[in-house]
């Protein structure tokens, strides 16, 4: 029979054993480690550890059913759902043209690597989405399917300033600020596209 209370322990052992206190002390220790995590994925793994320690504490205190629920729901279900949610929300979608995506130019791979590095420092992922032509790319930016576009500047425009080869248009202002401050490669221009006159949801 399941008795989810401490009373069972006290009925069987009149004195609570010393190891009970030590095991219970592990719970705030794991919680403190969890609180000081910065990266969301690391925090989720530590949360799983906290769930394992919590179910041990519940089992030692005699609450077998609570321990089973903590292990099933708190550790397995919640963590899996949260990883899926964080993975699909913490992402920057960058739209590029298919012809740019297929060519393996050194400037482009350097630029993508630099963008990825900047974005990774803020715990985001960079996802490349390729479109067949530039109209589809512009429409995708307007319809808010992607957060930014990266296209090649046509040669007649770039005669005056030679170092710019690509132009990057970003529609999320905070991302634009991050890129403006931290992007180190000078091979792209940065533009902020304000779409806020339409219904603003991003």
């Amino acid at each position: 029979m399941f008795w989810p209370t401490v009373l069972v322990v006290e009925k069987q052992h009149k004195m609570i054993d010393i190891y009970t206190y030590v095991i219970i002390a592990l719970l705030p220790l794991a919680a403190l480690i969890l609180v000081f995590q910065v990266n969301p994925y690391h925090a989720l793994v530590i949360r799983a550890i906290l769930g394992a320690v919590a179910s041990l504490v519940y089992a030692v205190l005699g609450a077998a059913d609570v321990a089973l629920t903590e292990a099933l729901v708190g550790t397995m279900l919640a963590i899996t759902l949260y990883v899926v949610a964080v993975r699909s929300s913490l992402v920057m979608r960058l739209g590029i043209l298919e012809e740019v995506a297929t060519e393996k130019e050194q400037y482009f791979t350097e630029l993508i690597a630099n963008l990825r590095q900047v974005v990774n420092e803020h715990h985001l992922r960079l996802e490349l989405v390729s479109y067949p032509n530039s109209e589809a790319l512009d429409n995708a930016l307007k319809n808010k399917e992607i957060h930014a576009t990266c296209t090649k500047i046509s040669p007649q425009d770039s005669e005056s300033e030679h170092q710019f080869i690509y132009q990057t248009a970003i529609r999320v202002h905070h991302l634009f600020e991050i890129m403006q401050n931290e992007l180190t490669l000078p091979t792209t221009t940065l533009n902020y596209i304000n779409l806020s006159h339409q219904e603003d949801k991003h």
């Binding site: 399941f2 394992a52 077998a64 059913d65 321990a67 089973l68 292990a71 397995m76």
Partner: peptide, 13 residues
């Protein structure tokens, strides 16, 4: 009961 739950948690973990 705690033993049964421990075995279940061992596999579920």
């Amino acid at each position: 009961p705690i033993g049964v739950v421990a075995v279940i948690i061992l596999s579920v973990g």
